[in-house]
Amino acid sequence: MYHHLEFEKPISELENKIVDLRKFAEENNIDLNNEVNILTRRLEAMKKEIYSGLNPWQKVRLARLQERPKALDYIQKLFSDFIELHGDRYYGDDGAIIAGIGMLSDIAVTVIAHQKGRDLEENLSRNFGMPHPEGYRKALRLMKQAEKFKRPIITLIDTPGAYCGLEAEERGQGEAIASNLLHLSRLKTPIISIVIGEGGSGGALALGIADRMAMLEHSIYSVISPEGLSSILWKDSSLAQRAADIMKLTAQDLLQLKVIDAIIQEPLGGAHRDIQVVTENMREYLLGELRILSRHSPQVLLDTRYEKIRSIGAWK
């Protein structure tokens, strides 16, 4: 069952009212169509108003929502003949990162994605979408393979961040991320990244060096979590909402800061309301941009990618 977020409460109340009214009309055999129509129109207006005016914290909640589609949900719908490939060939296979090959329409692609769990059990095996170094090394191995076979790379980003644990440090979390940043910047094949939920810091960036960078409408991307920032600033992680307000972490903020190239629309209320709509929007974006990128020579591709990364920043 879907758990409503607090700001969605007026919507669910009105939705319930409409259901009750319909039921009442049916049971008592009276015509309340007019009333139902009025309320339905009011509901639509209310939805539009609430969802188009979400504040950053509400976006954070939506981006992390359990019901929000995860990478595998999109992969199943976007790519035909998808074959998952496992392991970094050094240490192990990291469930927090999904990697594989498949077809996007008639284009063979390599897909790399963070996978959060859709329930507690899956979350435990996926470590809540927080990769260890071997996850990033698996990603790099398969991205180099993509370059070898001239396949474009599509990455889907959805992680609270790289895992902050003892073993992750022992196996070189910093080195693994750094190495991805360096190599991705020079891969001679088009790369497109889409943040589908939560873009958590370096753990997200390690899959996010791309020729095109897009975010779903209600996704977020930041250098630190709002909880992390508020605990640093005010020694209190419960002030995360206040932190979110000043961080500029929404897709709309990032477009304005020129960190991303595009926002992909979600249906009213968020991706989980209708994954088909989001998938079609993603497909259209990916095919359109791949068409443009495939016309570039490798040198132009690399030079443009470098300039794109190079130009981010602001000083006096």
Binding site: I177, A178, L181, L182, H183, S185, R186, S201, G202, L205, G208, I209, Y221, S222, V223, I224, L229, I232, M247, K248, L249, L254, L257, V259, R305, Y306, I309, R310, I312, G313, A314
Partner: peptide, 20 residues
């Protein structure tokens, strides 16, 4: 953290330059 996502992107920038 005061420069938010722009700080994060400096990781990408320096690494890309080192790749060259």
């Amino acid at each position: 953290m005061q420069e938010g996502i722009l700080s994060l992107m400096q990781m990408a920038k320096t690494s890309a330059a080192l790749a060259r």
